[in-house]
Amino acid sequence: MRTDVLPAGEARGVATTSPPVVGLRHVDVRYGAVRALHDVSLTVAAGERVALIGANGSGKSTLLRVMHGLVTTSGGAVTRSASARQAMLFQRPHMMRMSVHTNVALGLWLGGMGWSDAKARAHAALARTGMQELATRNARTLSGGQQQRLALARAWALQPDVLLLDEPTASLDPTAKRDVEALVAEFAARDGMTLVFSSHNLGQVKRLASRVIYLEQGRLVADLPVHEFFNGPLPEEARLFVKGELI
């Protein structure tokens, strides 16, 4: 399984026989005069674990939001599998001023699930993420790591096929980072979720990803299997970033 390192705007996804769950073709995104994404083309297949890396402002968060339908493109096309459910986890998730359990159940109920079923699913989600002992706590009083685990419980409760994560451990202490990372890995391994996540933690990328996409000023510069990205030749910008020398 191999893909070449290609010039920006021509990058392709890693070859796979799995069906695609999301695809972008020549996508541009502008925020006023700022071009956040420039001619980005890629495909994510079911079961992949895709890491988005690059300096701040490279377009990682915008790309995730485009994949999830939260940002309107200025050009190009985005396709999503009609049968693949998606959920997205943000770096600083919003917590409602209510119990941990209700934070999970309410979202399900608002999505059309009956209240009894929503409460049961919420209970299962908290058990799945090790949060059941905190079920009656006000979610606003949780630590940062606990809030991120609660956000993962809310995502898991939706039973998504695709989980998008924007710097999910960036502001957490080492213990909380390990807990969140372990849950994300389990979601991929045991629940079969497709992962697309942004991260500045290259160790985390090596542990979680099967594929790495490097972005530079909104352009897709490299798209490689994780082993080849960290052990093979790279474009100069990506090589400097990995070495920690990118200005």
Rank of each mutant, 00 (worst) to 15 (best):
A11R: 11
A36F: 00
D39V: 03
L126F: 11
R92S: 15
L126I: 12
D179T: 04
G218P: 00
S41N: 09
K177C: 15
D166L: 13
A8G: 15
G59L: 00
T73V: 15
E10W: 10
P225Y: 01
G47D: 05
K60G: 07
T79V: 06
A153Q: 05
R2C: 12
E216I: 05
D173I: 06
G47S: 01
D173K: 13
M98K: 03
M96Y: 15
A55M: 02
A124P: 06
L52P: 01
Q159G: 11
V44S: 01
S198G: 13
G145S: 08
D161Y: 10
A182Q: 13
Q132I: 15
L64S: 04
L164G: 08
A122W: 14
T73F: 00
N231I: 02
H38N: 07
G130W: 09
R12H: 13
G232Q: 09
N201E: 12
H38Q: 12
V184T: 01
R239N: 04
A33W: 00
A153H: 04
S171G: 05
R85H: 15
T43Q: 13
A82W: 04
A118E: 01
A176N: 13
V242T: 07
S143E: 07
S58P: 07
L240R: 12
H68G: 09
V180W: 04
M98W: 06
T72E: 11
T141A: 08
R92N: 08
V221I: 15
T79C: 01
R80Q: 07
